[in-house]
Amino acid sequence: SELMNSSKLIRMLEEDGWRLVRVTGSAHHFKHPKKPGLVTVPHPKKDLPIGTVKSIQKSAGL
């Protein structure tokens, strides 16, 4: 199965306009000026399962 580095996923979010608002432990929480909701990324993780990545991307509207 495909894995993604959390840094790469965070870069994709930031390029889309998401900004880090809070860190709780290894959970990084992002908000967007125009899009609704809060997106949480486990970080640092070298090997996020593709299912997790897809669900984060979906929440972020990517």
Rank of each mutant, 00 (worst) to 15 (best):
S1E: 15
S1V: 14
S1T: 13
E2T: 07
E2M: 07
E2A: 08
E2R: 06
E2N: 09
L3D: 11
L3A: 12
L3F: 11
L3K: 13
L3R: 10
L3G: 14
M4G: 09
M4P: 06
M4Y: 09
M4D: 05
M4T: 11
M4R: 05
M4V: 09
N5T: 12
N5V: 09
N5H: 10
N5K: 06
N5S: 14
N5W: 06
S6F: 04
S6M: 03
S6H: 03
S6R: 03
S6D: 01
S6P: 03
S7L: 10
S7I: 10
K8R: 13
K8E: 15
K8Y: 14
K8C: 15
K8Q: 14
K8P: 03
L9M: 10
L9P: 00
L9K: 01
L9W: 03
L9V: 08
I10S: 02
I10A: 02
I10M: 05
R11K: 13
R11I: 09
R11T: 14
R11A: 14
R11F: 08
R11D: 13
M12F: 07
M12G: 04
M12N: 05
M12W: 08
L13N: 00
L13H: 00
L13C: 02
E14S: 07
E14V: 10
E14M: 11
E14K: 09
E14C: 09
E15A: 11
D16I: 05
D16C: 05
D16S: 05
D16V: 05
D16N: 06
G17V: 00
R19C: 14
R19Y: 12
R19Q: 14
R19A: 10
R19I: 15
L20I: 08
L20F: 04
L20K: 06
V21F: 10
V21T: 09
V21D: 07
V21S: 08
V21I: 11
V21M: 07
R22L: 15
R22G: 14
R22E: 15
R22H: 14
V23C: 08
V23I: 13
V23Y: 06
V23T: 08
T24F: 08
T24H: 11
G25E: 13
G25Q: 14
G25C: 11
G25W: 08
S26C: 12
S26K: 12
S26D: 15
S26N: 12
S26L: 14
A27N: 14
H28T: 05
H28Y: 10
H29I: 15
H29S: 12
H29E: 15
H29A: 09
F30Y: 10
F30L: 06
F30P: 00
F30R: 01
K31S: 10
K31F: 07
K31V: 09
K31Q: 14
H32G: 00
P33E: 09
P33L: 08
P33I: 06
K34E: 13
K34N: 13
K35F: 03
K35I: 03
K35E: 02
K35C: 04
K35N: 03
K35V: 03
K35Y: 03
K35W: 03
P36C: 10
G37T: 05
G37I: 03
L38V: 13
L38P: 04
L38M: 12
V39M: 03
V39D: 00
V39K: 01
T40D: 05
T40Q: 08
T40A: 12
V41R: 00
V41M: 03
P42K: 05
P42A: 05
H43D: 04
H43R: 03
H43G: 03
H43T: 03
H43L: 02
H43C: 04
H43A: 03
H43P: 01
P44A: 05
P44Q: 03
P44W: 04
P44H: 04
K45M: 11
K45G: 07
K45D: 09
K46A: 15
K46G: 10
D47G: 08
D47S: 12
D47N: 14
D47E: 12
L48G: 01
L48E: 01
L48Q: 01
L48C: 02
P49K: 09
P49V: 04
P49C: 07
P49H: 07
P49F: 05
I50P: 14
I50H: 10
I50S: 10
I50Y: 08
I50M: 11
I50A: 10
I50E: 15
G51I: 10
G51S: 13
G51R: 08
G51T: 12
G51A: 14
G51H: 13
T52L: 15
T52R: 09
T52N: 04
T52I: 15
V53C: 04
V53Q: 05
V53Y: 03
V53A: 05
K54G: 05
K54S: 10
K54Q: 11
K54C: 13
K54N: 07
S55A: 15
I56S: 01
I56L: 04
Q57Y: 13
K58D: 12
K58L: 13
K58T: 10
K58E: 14
K58P: 02
K58R: 14
K58C: 12
S59D: 11
S59E: 11
S59K: 15
S59L: 15
S59Q: 15
A60K: 01
A60W: 00
A60N: 02
G61T: 02
G61A: 04
G61L: 03
G61H: 05
G61F: 03
L62F: 03
L62M: 09
L62Q: 04
